[in-house]
């Protein structure tokens, strides 16, 4: 790889992303883990900028750092005495490792030029161009058009709204279960949900 400014910036943001992610797993303090998650997601936003996808970078920061990690922190605060966890139960890590490896191989298989050589059908959106510098200046407008174009992404777009609605109603149902103490019960059950809305 040629050493250009872009390459250096890429390496820096990759390091931020991976380092942050690693700390999320390694740190014992849940609050710190959430902050490291923010750092990691911020690194991803930087990578999006490098790919000349500034809108995705903005959306990444606004949604993931500004909303979902905040939601995670709120969920952390709902759990009683999480700082007191002294013993860490790490019994499931081989499974997690296997799944992560599988996902990695799968992504490489389907998303990289390697895919063509291996004979798999690479799946890519219409926006893909060879060189990031060739991204047209009005790609944002194009994105807006394609979101409401019945022949392109209209259906997923409306489905996203439906999903958001379902997430909201589900959350209300979880919190509003009758005859129990919402503070103690509802929150951990709802804690697993943030992914849905993203």
């Amino acid at each position: 790889m040629e050493i250009t400014v872009e390459a250096i910036v890429f390496l820096v943001f990759s390091a931020i992303t991976l380092g942050g992610a690693l700390q999320v797993v390694l740190t014992r303090n849940l609050f710190h883990a959430a902050l490291y998650l923010m750092l990691s997601l911020f690194g991803v936003a930087g990578l999006f900028v490098l790919l000349t996808a500034p809108f995705l970078a903005g959306a990444q920061v606004v949604i993931y750092i500004g909303a979902i990690t905040i939601l995670i922190i709120f969920a952390i605060m709902l759990t009683p005495q999480v700082t007191r966890v002294l013993k860490v139960h790490h019994t499931q890590w081989p499974v997690a490792l296997a799944l992560a490896a599988l996902l990695f191989v799968g992504l490489v298989w389907t998303q990289t030029p390697l895919a063509d050589e291996l004979g798999a059908d690479g799946w890519s959106a219409d926006f893909t161009v060879e060189d990031p510098a060739d991204v047209p200046a009005d790609s944002l407008t194009d994105l807006g058009k394609s979101l409401v174009d019945p022949e392109r992404y209209m259906l997923p777009f409306e489905a996203a709204s439906l999903l958001l609605m379902a997430a909201l109603i589900g959350a209300v149902l979880l919190v509003n279960r009758p005859d129990d103490n919402p503070d103690a019960e509802a929150a951990p059950a709802a804690g697993a949900r943030p992914d849905q809305s993203g």
Binding site: L71, F74, V175
Partner: peptide, 17 residues
Amino acid sequence: WVQFRAQYYVFALVFVA
């Protein structure tokens, strides 16, 4: 580290959506 009320979480969820 006092335990917070679930209300905060509901507002955060509505906000995420």
